[in-house]
Design a protein around this nucleic acid. Sequence first.
DNA 1: GCCTATACTTACCTATAAGTAAGTCAGGAA
DNA 2: TTCCTGACTTACTTATAGGTAAGTATAGGC
Lengths: 196, 196
Amino acid sequence: MATATNTREQIVDHAYQLMLQRGLNGFSYRDISEPLGIKNAAIHYHFPNKMDLIRALVDENIQRVRRATAQFMAEGGDARVQLEGLFAFAQRQCECGRPICLAGALAIDYDELPEEIKEANDRFFDYSRKWLTKVLQLGREQNVFSFAGQAEIKAMSILATVQGIRQMARACGQDILEPVFQQIRLDLGIDPGINP
Amino acid sequence: MATATNTREQIVDHAYQLMLQRGLNGFSYRDISEPLGIKNAAIHYHFPNKMDLIRALVDENIQRVRRATAQFMAEGGDARVQLEGLFAFAQRQCECGRPICLAGALAIDYDELPEEIKEANDRFFDYSRKWLTKVLQLGREQNVFSFAGQAEIKAMSILATVQGIRQMARACGQDILEPVFQQIRLDLGIDPGINP
DNA sequence: GCCTATACTTACCTATAAGTAAGTCAGGAA
DNA sequence: TTCCTGACTTACTTATAGGTAAGTATAGGC
């Protein structure tokens, strides 16, 4: 049928939004099927059980970050632009009602997840850390970042800060994002006068 | 009855643990009543509905942080000791199966919460931020911390980092905590040779 | 010894969750 | 033209959730 892939995509889209706003146990198949005007069983047709659906969200999540960073990972580039990309992404997600990221949302339900989903989610963290490590290493070489310690640990630390502030934005509002991003820039010794 | 307050406390204890491990919608009254050898209705007796129970957890959370920091907030003290207290607390919580903090766990379920619980939870964030801001300000005056920007924003940034890394510890294991805490120390220019 | 409040248990209710088996129906291949 | 496959719907099942009303046992005050 012509709408086949379309329905599947719409299910994933809705599930993604619901997952980020309410968590794994905070939404049901009805929350997806009703707004789409389909039946619950239609979701079961595409995703036999809920974990199959969650698996699709995790895969989607990995693909998105890979797409967004593919060029940099292959060819390198301006470190500051990459870092600003991370900030802008978090900002946009907040604005469209997705303050908390998928990997963060799944952390709460972690021991409910089957092993393969844990592994897939871990790959998202691994990839993100590798990307930001490369950004920081290059930025140091380009003399636009300055920080103490290993790039890999600094990368974990910045990812944690972004993760944490997105979580806190739910309570405090998204206005806290930009000041904290500015603090990260300050801590990286970024000269505000020089734009990339 | 002699066991009255005891039962109530045990309910709160179990609920606290379950809330942190599975999130608001990830545990049921049965998960509390069964291990305690009581009936679901006994929980309803103490907490007429689930939100009353959650409210008790949030109150408990605020009281704990106030107790832990009361002396410093009244009289001041060594800034490094306070900061290490935060790190040690996070470390201990991870070790006893509570990687994610209550306020963070509730962030996922935020729009499900009644207004009064949101406000109570916000007070936890506010209080934590005020405490850490004071720690950073004093540390700067004591010449043991050095950082760029406002103490209040730096405080938010550090709280976010701790919050975020605790979330990530669920996936990556608690071994990532200490390196990231060390990064926070480095970023604060803490001299590792001088112990408080 | 009776009374009352506290701290429960027993026995229910209703709603909703995830999931399934069987049927429908359109469109393309043989 | 028939038949098969993909994409569903209809109509169910079973389990569990949160919640309630009425009853019970015990301790302490009078």
